[in-house]
Design a protein around this nucleic acid. Structure first.
Lengths: 191, 191
DNA sequence: CGAAAATTTGACATGACTCAACTGGAGTGG
DNA sequence: CCACTCCAGTTGAGTCATGTCAAATTTTCG
């Protein structure tokens, strides 16, 4: 039987070296889950019990604020998604995560992850690096939101994530950029 | 001789359990540095070589954007400061870090930190947790910047970091909140 | 005390939002 | 396969939050 988690192992090996034994340990502890469009992977208010890796498809992380979706992250293949705070402190999630395409995610449960950390200590490092990168990216995004105008941010988004524009409805991109869909529309026209 | 790094060890022990031997390893690898007001600990464009812990005083992390300081973080006793991206990838720092009071920081060099990770693997976990918390805090701050008005953000800042207002000039608080000093001034008046 | 830095004030400008109406697909069911 | 609905996107008018600039005032500190 072939290992459907090869993709995950390849992804991990981009940051830390892992051998066959490690790959086996990793593959054993994850399981796959299929999602249809609009399926909710994690609901705001519930507790996150899994670390989730997108094998295929597209998911968004958002907070509901007075009925308005505030998109925090747009994730595609080879991205991790989660509310880390909820996951690690076992508190109510501040965000929801939902599929906007048919998707497949690989997920690992909390205690399984702890076991994996013992078996393959490099995984601890792997996640530190991942989180670190996410953190610095988030910092950069924060600064750019203060520093740049919406038009500039949209231009940057296109150069960086242009391929996403076909997959994600425009109003979600607007929300991701922190502006209203109407305003994104006028920006697009004027360009 | 007493151990001046006791404060640091106590801080670490809030997240991971460490024994006497661990404390000794930690204390040996850090060293202390005194800073006067306005001293630059890390300059934008240079490479960060240390992980830095504030033992005493107050430092700000900021990016220079067209001559304007954009304050990303305000740190006091028991906070860590750094440009993580610069530190871990050995690239030019996007931020500067400077003391705005007489301060003392405990710092550890990159390779010393790697050695410490080997000696005391829990430190890897400690930093993962730290970075994780910083990341989720940054996410929350991002959302609040999009969701809330400047007045609300200022009110939140006061309840959360009220004690900082005596130590930090108002224009830095304004920058931290992502607004102009003039506007913060009018907010303060109207409240 | 005096100079430089921080804060306040006010007039004016503008980026971005709100609301409401309109357009144009993409299903869906009869 | 048409009619209908629904949702995404567009457009425009009016408004508001926040920025800009410049001057006046207060505070800090050598």
């Amino acid at each position: 039987m072939i290992n459907q988690y090869k993709q995950l192992c390849t992804h991990i090996s981009e940051l830390v070296h892992i051998d066959n034994h490690d790959e086996k340990c990793i593959s054993e502890r994850f399981d796959a889950k299929e999602l249809r469009k609009k399926d909710i992977l994690l609901g705001q208010g519930s507790v996150s019990n899994h670390m989730m890796f997108i094998s295929k498809g597209c998911l968004i992380t958002y907070a509901l604020d007075n009925g308005v979706e505030r998109v925090l992250q747009i994730g595609i293949e080879n991205w991790w998604v989660n509310d880390l705070n909820s996951f690690f402190t076992q508190t109510a999630s501040a965000y929801s995560i939902k599929a906007i395409e048919e998707s497949i995610v690989f997920q690992i449960q909390r205690d399984e992850l702890e076991l994996l950390f013992r078996e393959v200590p490099k995984m601890e490092r792997f996640f530190r690096l991942k989180i670190q990168n996410a953190y610095t990216a988030q910092q950069a995004r924060f600064i750019s939101n203060v520093t740049e105008t919406a038009e500039e941010r949209y231009a940057n988004f296109r150069t960086k994530y242009g391929m996403l524009e076909q997959r994600v409805p425009q109003y979600m991109v607007a929300s991701y950029l922190g502006i209203t869909p109407e305003f994104l529309s006028t920006i697009r026209k004027s360009t």
